[in-house]
């Protein structure tokens, strides 16, 4: 398999995993457009074990999708030799360079802010009710931070050039 084909696969993966990742985020925005604080009763709902399993699977899906998206993006920049220039915001690589920083921040947000707190909300990590309620506020703000950051990130991705590799 030559590099052009690998690049095409990376682009495809980048789109696919990116849609799965950020799509979950936007689904959350559409389902809950306004912040509604959780109550202690929400955490002791009889359906909560089932809900916990569903949310855990959903979270795992988009958490790993974020890694695939990030790796595919870095691969595309690396194999072109553009990664150093992008990271140093040089010339025409500056827009996608800013995109790399925003995307990296978003992935770190998912793994190191959202997920540790979500584990407490879901009860995967034992925590008192007041702590779980506090964590639900943090997961909300963390999730919406990524919603907000995805807007400039998608703009910066769209502002790059397109190679037309399939028909070359």
């Amino acid at each position: 398999m030559d590099m052009a084909m690998l690049d095409l696969l990376a682009r495809w993966l980048h789109f696919l995993a990116g849609v799965i990742w950020v799509g979950h985020n936007y689904a959350s925005v559409v389902n809950r457009p306004r912040w509604r604080p959780l109550a202690a009763s929400d955490l002791s709902d009889p359906d909560s074990p089932k809900l916990k399993e569903v949310i855990n699977r959903e979270h795992g899906t988009f958490r790993w999708a974020s890694v695939v998206t990030w790796c595919a993006g870095i691969f595309m920049l690396w194999h072109r030799g553009w990664l150093p220039g992008a990271l140093q915001l040089q010339g025409t690589l500056a827009p996608i360079g800013v995109g790399v920083y925003i995307g990296t921040l978003m992935m770190l947000n998912v793994w190191f802010v959202l997920w540790p707190h979500q584990k407490k909300v879901l009860g995967l990590v034992p925590a008192p009710v007041h702590e779980r309620l506090r964590c639900s506020r943090i997961t909300h703000l963390s999730s919406r931070t990524n919603t907000m950051l995805s807007i400039p990130l998608l703009f910066l991705m769209a502002s790059g050039s397109h190679g037309g590799y399939l028909l070359r």
Binding site: W35, P95, V98, L141, M148, L149, P152, F155
Partner: peptide, 30 residues
């Protein structure tokens, strides 16, 4: 305490505003 992220519209508005600022900065520094 209310936060702009508590409303979907203000969240999107912040994203659009940040996009405009970054785009302007990139044009300025290009």
């Amino acid at each position: 305490m209310r936060h702009p992220y508590d409303n979907a519209l203000t969240t999107v508005a912040l994203g659009v505003a940040l996009t405009a600022v970054l785009a302007a900065l990139l044009r300025l520094l290009a």
